[in-house]
Amino acid sequence: MQKIIRSSIVLLFIFVFFVFYNSLNRETNYSTDYLVGKKLTKFNLKSFHEKNIYTNEDLKKNDYTLINFWASWCAPCRVEHPYLMQLSKEKNLKILGVNFKDKKINASKFLNELGNPYNDLAKDMTGKQSVNFGIYGIPESILVNNETMILKKFIGPLNNQDINYIKDIINSL
């Protein structure tokens, strides 16, 4: 009996150290990676220019859609913009831009200045809609397929590596 208690105490501590040791090399920052593989929940995004509304059904028409959240006041959005322009040339991919907590004039100016990579453009003035996508800061981008399943989430500005990753996926058909 005493032996069992003693060895289980020792084992417990070894287990704790093992966990501590493992946790040392882990990323402690929050991430939304677990959303990958889930389907998007229902959303209603107002169009930027017109009166129509974008829903999940619209995305099912496309092979792949990249949903990009951006604003004219967001400096990193400027950084990732050239990459979006590059992606807009891809045939298998549609880009849905969501203008986030922005003023219409500033946003239009931003696109006139740097070019418009978006096939569709929606707006989210209050930021409430973005919660449906699990967004917590911008820029963020979500790559979905024609079943609106999330293939990848990009937090922060897109870079060269991300672009190549997206190209690999959409051209693998």
């Binding site: 150290f17 501590f20 040791y21 946790s23 040392l24 090399n25 882990r26 402690t28 920052n29 929050y30």
Partner: peptide, 22 residues
């Protein structure tokens, strides 16, 4: 000090410290 926890009170963290203390 090892930085395995996310806290209001931030300290500069470094895993090698963690290994030593562990």
């Amino acid at each position: 000090r090892s930085g395995i926890l996310n806290s209001v009170h931030t300290f500069a963290n470094d895993p090698s410290r963690g290994i030593f203390i562990l």
